[in-house]
Design a protein around this nucleic acid. Structure first.
Lengths: 347, 347
DNA sequence: CTGAAAGCGCTTACAG
DNA sequence: CTGAAAGCGCTTACAG
């Protein structure tokens, strides 16, 4: 039940929104032409100090702010960027790290006077709508986040020449779309080596979805250290806590003598802890558990998770930087950031 | 260390972005005037079925998408809405629920062809910049999230007649800005009553910041049930996990015989659990712990948290609906949604 | 260094 | 039901 209160008593007819001042108002007040104001605003080249000063005053007196729509129409530049979230069913927003990424990108772009449009491609239909929106030139570029391997977005945006930067390695498009990624494979290697250095012999792993880079690369890192392993040691989850719990249960059933598990995300690791506890295994005494992400969840569990930290703030800054560079006509590039082991109580 | 790989080998000069088709192209292909195309697009009134059909075909053949900047310039409507995040230092993004809110708003707005601009008011300077941006008519309205009591944003946007909807009760502006809130006070009452029904006698509380509605209202609910209590039973945190831990430690020191604690957020409750464990208190045997939010953290802790669920998806939908109504000239309103107790293992 | 003018792509009375 | 035309607020060669 919800209660919708009656309209606020104090509110009469809402005041009509006053028309904001335009460049004409500023020009008139400063005693110059519209063109000169525009030039003063855009770099200030070819404007005398006197005019500059008069304009500055007029702007502050009128409270003038440039109308981005008009500017965009004239320049054919949107001064905005789309943050396209391809949501894997349910799993996506479970990871609090993505909000850090989102915030970081918005702030990095704001510095360059770019605004961030948030779009969510939940369904295939959404995806199509967004693709049209983006290719229609409403934005200058796009940030692709959590986009699965088979998504048509890569090809569509590429074909239209829209500058794009992917978050994480864009599987199948490593060569034709720019990206900034964490070194997932090396992170996985670090964790598995760490587990081995603790004397563990039967090390299992719970992977993420294998059409996402975090899924395949972290598994590859596992194999780098351990070589080919008993295939029963490998279970796959979908990054949700429930999937981690189910995968752990399966592993315990199939490989009862395992003594460690490397889980490809903290949230799944939290699920794994639940399954282990239920099975009466002590962590880390009987089974060591390593996570990935260093998200909030890592310190909320008991015991606290040993995990791999991803430099999210750094990553978002790099994504913004790279996209801005592409928009300015520079060549595509790939940036790979290192991952770091954070040892806590679960190993 | 980061590795910036050399440019992709396959990428030559990036293809110049082709100019997207305009309404003129569609009109020419359909054999009608631009005005008719525009009318067909905006409701289809006064357009013959034949023309309508010809236009439909031309649009699909050309892949035409309306240029929002041009449309906005002509209509004086931005077709977009700002999501203004007033970030309380560090604390904000710890709460994963906000991403659910953000996602919900974006989706609800997308249905109405509105795009969501994400802006972050970290510093006072940001806040000023955003205020100018919004009042300059770049957006049709604003969603205010986590805005502290003293923020000038309320007055500034109100004065300029910008439609605004706040997330949660806007302290000090309940009468002049629309909002949709959870019934914090009643949620707190439910939790405290629940604690009492478990036979607890010395019930402490850890509140949120007292310039945020979740801080004052949840504390008020606590008092509603318990009346005036020993002031030492009340500690204040800032919604971070660390602050919850510190507050719990303080409570244990000052009121060693407490047997329950109502914590105003799950994350702070996770911190409280850590402090309790360190002090050798069993949960719930010695001390019952109640949280608030039903966030991811609530099920990652041991024991899992009894908490108050907030209907975030519902809240975001209501916020979008209300803002759209305001933009269409309707009167301000307040919507209050119920909170629900979720009993788990910590009480 | 500066102004007049064309143009960006759309909407919307207005006349017919 | 339809087209011609003005206008939204800016930028940018162009001429001076």
């Amino acid at each position: 039940m919800s209660a919708a209160e009656s309209p606020h008593p104090s509110s009469g007819a809402r005041p009509r929104r006053p028309r904001p001042p335009t460049m004409n108002d500023v020009a008139a007040m400063a005693g110059v032409s519209r063109g000169t104001v525009s030039r003063a605003l855009n770099g200030g080249h070819n404007v005398s100090p006197a005019a500059q000063e008069a304009i500055r005053k007029a702007i502050s007196k009128t409270g003038y702010v440039v109308n981005q729509h008009a500017r965009s129409l004239a320049t054919q530049r949107a001064h905005s960027v789309a943050f396209i979230l391809s949501e894997s069913p349910d799993a996506f927003f479970e990871d609090p790290n993505y909000s850090v990424l989102l915030r970081g990108c918005a702030q990095a772009l704001a510095i360059h006077d770019m605004t961030l449009l948030l779009t969510i491609a939940g369904t295939a239909e959404d995806s199509k709508r967004i693709s049209r929106y983006v290719t229609a030139g409403h934005v200058d570029g796009a940030l692709l986040v959590s986009t699965h391997a088979g998504s048509p977005l890569f090809d569509e945006l590429n074909a239209r020449g829209v500058p794009v930067v992917a978050c994480g390695k864009p599987l199948g498009h490593e060569r034709d779309v720019s990206y900034v990624a964490i070194d997932d494979r090396d992170g996985a290697r670090r964790m598995v080596r760490h587990l081995r250095s603790r004397g563990r012999q039967r090390i299992a792993t719970i992977t993420g979805p294998l059409d996402l880079p975090g899924g395949v690369d972290r598994l590859a890192g596992y194999h780098d250290v351990l070589g080919q392993t008993d295939p029963r040691l490998i279970a796959t989850g979908d990054y949700t806590q429930a999937s981690g719990e189910a995968a752990m249960q399966r592993l315990l059933y199939e490989v009862p003598d395992l003594d460690a598990v490397f889980v490809a995300s903290d949230l799944m690791a939290a699920g794994a802890l639940t399954a282990l506890r239920r099975a009466g295994r002590r962590v880390p005494d009987d089974v060591a558990v390593g996570g990935f992400d260093d998200s909030k969840v890592a310190t909320a569990t008991t015991p606290k998770l040993t995990t791999i930290r991803q430099p999210w703030a750094r990553q978002s800054a790099e994504m913004a930087r790279l996209l801005l560079a592409l928009i300015d006509g520079e060549q595509p590039a790939a940036v790979v950031l290192p991952a770091e082991l954070v040892a806590r109580d679960s190993t």
